[in-house]
Computed example of a mutant assay.
Amino acid sequence: MKAKQVPLVLAAALLAVLATLAVVLSGPRETGQAAPPASAERTEVPVAPSDEPQAEPAAGMAKADPVSIDVPKIDAKSSLIPLGLNADNTIEVPPVTQPLQAGWYVHGPTPGEVGPSVILGHVDGNKQKGIFFRLKELAPGDKVSVARKDGTTAEFAVTKVERVAKDKFPTDAVYGDTTEPELRLITCGGVFDKASRNYLDNIIVFARLIAR
């Protein structure tokens, strides 16, 4: 199954919506986010080369809504609520008053299907740490589990982690078609701008299905 393309109007609106992932009442001291490098807006952690034989691409799982996510390395566990589009075609986000709640984007593949499934969560909110407060700590090889409504669990391994300026959000890389089941985890990061009360960057984790 091919991933559904993000509508063109959504690409333009995406930057503004992702900014709402970190509308908080506190400054960067409470968030623990680091400033971006002075010479770059984008920081990428690539997959380390390996001499071990590469596994065959995982076949896709049947469609099944996700019910929860577990990221052991950063102690992030949450049920998953469906996130669609707002009236202005921007992507919904979990309530900022419930920063420990994650959600999945319903107009893409469900986790485990061929294509990129997307899960969003806050870095913080309401003067509390969010479900993805430590998302930037993930590295290639770290595991992510998504339990599904059909009783199965999709197991993913991180392939790379990026910090990207919001005005350079890689819409195609996040939402574009892929040939195997993949996962994207998205939150805010980088510098907290007190004037706009938003973070300037996004943290994006890319992962691929390794077991089911």
Rank of each mutant, 00 (worst) to 15 (best):
W104G: 09
D75P: 00
S79F: 04
G112L: 05
K73W: 07
V71F: 03
P111N: 07
S68E: 12
E92N: 03
E92K: 14
I69H: 02
K77E: 13
G112T: 06
Q101N: 02
V67G: 01
K73D: 02
L85E: 02
T110A: 14
D65C: 07
L83P: 00
Q101W: 05
P111H: 01
A87E: 15
V106S: 12
P95M: 00
D75I: 07
N86F: 08
P82A: 11
Y105K: 07
G84C: 11
S68M: 10
G112N: 05
D70Y: 14
L80K: 12
E92I: 00
I81Q: 09
A87R: 15
P111D: 06
N86C: 04
V71T: 05
V96W: 06
G84N: 10
I74C: 09
L85V: 10
V96F: 09
V106H: 04
P66R: 01
P99K: 08
S78D: 07
T110F: 12
A76G: 14
I91G: 02
V67I: 15
V67C: 10
D65Q: 14
V96H: 06
Y105W: 14
P99T: 00
W104L: 03
L83K: 06
E92L: 00
D65L: 14
V71N: 03
E113H: 08
E113F: 06
D88H: 09
K73S: 05
K77R: 12
I69S: 08
H107P: 03
Y105T: 11
D70T: 15
N86A: 05
P72I: 03
L83D: 05
I91Y: 04
V106Y: 03
V93A: 11
I81D: 02
P72T: 01
I91Q: 07
P99N: 05
G112E: 07
L100I: 04
I91V: 13
L100S: 09
G112V: 08
G84L: 10
T97V: 05
D65A: 15
A102I: 03
S78V: 10
P66I: 00
A102T: 03
S78H: 09
D70G: 04
P72M: 09
P111M: 11
P109G: 02
Q101S: 04
P94V: 12
D65K: 15
L100D: 05
T97E: 13
A102K: 13
V71M: 10
G112P: 11
L85W: 00
I81L: 12
Y105S: 05
G108A: 13
P94T: 06
P109I: 01
T97N: 10
K77F: 12
V106G: 00
G103R: 00
Y105N: 09
L83G: 04
S68T: 13
K73A: 14
N89P: 00
W104E: 08
P99M: 01
H107L: 14
A102H: 12
V93Q: 08
K73H: 08
I74E: 06
P82W: 00
